[in-house]
Simulated assay, not measured.
Amino acid sequence: MTCESCVKHVSTSLYKLDGINKVDANLKEQLVFIEGTAPPSSIVSAIQDTGRDAILRGSGTSNSSAVCILETHSNSVSNKVRGLARMVQVSPNMTLVDLTINGLAPGKYHATIREAGDISQGAASTGGIWDALKTKVLGSDEAQKEPRGVFGSVDVDRKGREGPFKREDENTLVGVIARSAGVWDNDKMVCSCSGKNVWEERQEQVGQGMA
């Protein structure tokens, strides 16, 4: 952003999203603070639609955010990273799951959390669905509840975006959920492990399907 007109352009694009409550931009620091419940990926996309790029520097508060890099264990593909899942607790009773997928064959895919964090054998070693409830006794008035580990399904279009497991299935993605930084909890400018700045890391992540 180079002027107040840029700030207005970015803010207007963001306010078009559902769930955006407040947008504050700092032209000098090149920072945009956004408050609301819009998915992180849609926020970045809205800024990109203005001809600019953006790096998300945190979601939610400390200890309320998590991230999971999704990858295939198939040996038939070179780029194994196919997506990213972000989880943000936006209220005591609501967690937002933002799922980005790239490079999959068209079709319907199911998003679930499994019991184990072991991905050594791909999806085959991750166990059953987390929090699966036992079948209710016949005649019970309480309706059968779906496990909390079931997030729903994702329909992938022909561009590749949005039974027993097979290790070599390039369209089966797995990853380990890890805690991520909350808003402003991670303000690094250079990665000490690679020497790259955050923008160089951003381009690398985009190339790996983690935009």
Rank of each mutant, 00 (worst) to 15 (best):
Val88Gly: 00
Pro92Trp: 08
Ala46Glu: 02
Glu115Thr: 14
Gln30Phe: 00
Val90Asp: 05
Gly152Lys: 11
Val44Gly: 01
Val97Glu: 02
Cys191Tyr: 11
Leu14Arg: 01
Ser120Leu: 07
Glu115Trp: 09
Val206Gln: 15
Gln205Cys: 01
Ala211Asn: 14
Ile20Leu: 03
Glu162Arg: 07
Gln144His: 13
Ala25Thr: 14
Val67Lys: 03
Lys108Arg: 15
Leu27Met: 12
Thr172Trp: 00
Asp49Gln: 15
Trp184Leu: 14
Pro92Phe: 10
Asp131His: 12
Thr172Arg: 02
Tyr15Ala: 06
Pro106Trp: 11
Ala111Glu: 06
Gly207Tyr: 01
Asn102Gln: 11
Glu71Asp: 08
Asn102Cys: 06
Asp155Ile: 14
Gln203Arg: 15
Asn79Ile: 01
Ile43Met: 02
Tyr109Met: 06
Gln48Phe: 02
Gln144Gly: 14
Gly60Trp: 02
Pro164Phe: 00
Ala143Gln: 12
Arg148Asn: 11
His9Asp: 10
Glu170Val: 12
Ser91Trp: 05
Gly149Phe: 09
Glu142Leu: 10
Lys8Gly: 00
Arg167Met: 13
Pro39Gln: 03
Gly103Asp: 06
Gly207Gln: 08
Cys6Thr: 07
Glu201Asp: 14
Ser74His: 04
Val67Glu: 02
Glu168Gln: 13
Thr100His: 04
Phe33Trp: 04
Val97Asp: 02
Arg52Ser: 02
Asp155Ser: 07
Asp185Asn: 12
Ile101Met: 06
Asn63Gly: 01
Arg161Ser: 09
Glu162Phe: 10
Glu71Trp: 04
Gly58Leu: 07
Met87Phe: 15
Asp141Phe: 10
Ser78Met: 09
Thr135Ala: 12
Ser91Thr: 00
Leu138Asp: 11
Thr50Trp: 13
Ile69Asn: 00
Ser140Met: 04
Gly195Pro: 07
Ala124Leu: 11
Leu133Ser: 15
Gln30Leu: 03
Thr2Asn: 10
Arg158His: 14
